[in-house]
Amino acid sequence: MYPLKFENIYFDKIWGGRDLELFRSNLPEGDIGESWDVACHPHGTSVVANGEYKGMKLDELIKKVGSEIIGTSISKEWFPLLVKLINAKDKLSVQVHPDDRYGMQAEGEMGKTEAWYVVEAFEGANLVVGTKDCTREQFKKAIETGEFDELMNQIPVQKGDVYFVKSGLVHAIGEGVIIAEIQQNSDTTYRVYDYNRGRELHIDKALDVVNLSLRGEKSRGLLVQRNGFSKTYYCLCEHFALELYEVTESFKECSDNERFYIFTVVEGAGEIISNGNKESIRKGDSILIPASLGEYEIKGVVKLLKSFVPNMEKSKQEILSEVVTE
């Protein structure tokens, strides 16, 4: 096996734009709102862009090699993660996602918990994460009147900010940002308000799943310095872990037979070296590290997000050991 790159899957959105052209040259025409970069979903499945398996769909590759790519602890029946880049030139709808139980009952797929990393923040960049001490009655009235602004916890953001968006949290991506979104493999969104743009709303389902007690706060993370790189632990939940590597020279790691890793480049450029294979990487790329890869090295001046489905106990022990060491 080798590190896998994939073709970008682009989606035209009414709130999208052309800002991904800052670091990509393959955008189709239109207002591009989303690029699905590692995906295995009925609405979009990645196609391998490099090496021996070039041209093969990710679901087909999983059927062919199974745990060699996804790991022994990951179900072959449902790929667990979806990695996107989102370009919002205009604000997205006010929305909420269900948890797994509701998602399976109502939609036949998992719920959606996600994390956002701000790749670019332009003038006026903002996100909405949660509400300002909003009661259920106030929320229902806002749905009826469309007067959400006073209730929403709108936060100005800058490049490098990270937010954890748990299922049930009311949220919206504001205008003026490029976001790297790491999420459960689900495409279920319940729109509460859409600024009179004529798209379908899902008010009853949204009211079923919304949790107004949830608060959205910027993730501070735990920073650990190493020779040639630093690592920040940002998010850890049963669905995924999210870490940021800031590489100034290089680092070496080994794959995990139980799970795959995904690296998403959010700044700079470099290369991944493994088993005699060398793959260049640059801003905007996402690369899947197969579970059976073995040792690999990443070189360059580059920032990468690492996402994976964790062994919770193992990850907690790793973070705890870093706290003790520090």
Rank of each mutant, 00 (worst) to 15 (best):
residue 193 Y to C: 05
residue 179 I to G: 00
residue 195 Y to M: 05
residue 89 K to V: 14
residue 102 Y to H: 15
residue 142 A to Y: 14
residue 86 I to D: 04
residue 141 K to A: 07
residue 136 R to L: 09
residue 99 D to R: 08
residue 169 L to E: 15
residue 152 M to Y: 09
residue 79 F to Q: 13
residue 101 R to A: 12
residue 119 V to K: 04
residue 196 N to F: 06
residue 130 G to I: 02
residue 137 E to K: 13
residue 195 Y to N: 13
residue 146 G to F: 02
residue 180 A to M: 14
residue 91 K to R: 07
residue 85 L to D: 03
residue 167 S to M: 09
residue 116 W to E: 03
residue 79 F to Y: 06
residue 89 K to A: 03
residue 146 G to C: 13
residue 204 D to C: 05
residue 152 M to P: 04
residue 157 V to R: 00
residue 164 F to E: 12
residue 153 N to Y: 04
residue 149 D to W: 04
residue 194 D to R: 14
residue 80 P to K: 00
residue 196 N to M: 05
residue 178 I to K: 00
residue 134 C to P: 12
residue 165 V to L: 12
residue 183 Q to R: 12
residue 148 F to Q: 14
residue 108 G to A: 14
residue 89 K to Q: 07
residue 96 V to L: 07
residue 147 E to A: 12
residue 130 G to D: 00
residue 108 G to I: 14
residue 96 V to K: 11
residue 117 Y to D: 00
residue 172 A to P: 05
residue 140 K to W: 01
residue 167 S to V: 15
residue 131 T to D: 06
residue 202 H to G: 00
residue 82 L to S: 12
residue 138 Q to E: 15
residue 164 F to P: 11
residue 181 E to S: 07
residue 89 K to S: 11
residue 207 L to E: 03
residue 103 G to W: 01
residue 104 M to H: 03
residue 167 S to K: 10
residue 126 N to P: 05
residue 109 E to L: 07
residue 156 P to S: 10
residue 135 T to W: 00
residue 139 F to V: 10
residue 179 I to C: 11
residue 152 M to Q: 03
residue 188 T to Q: 12
residue 195 Y to T: 06
residue 110 M to V: 05
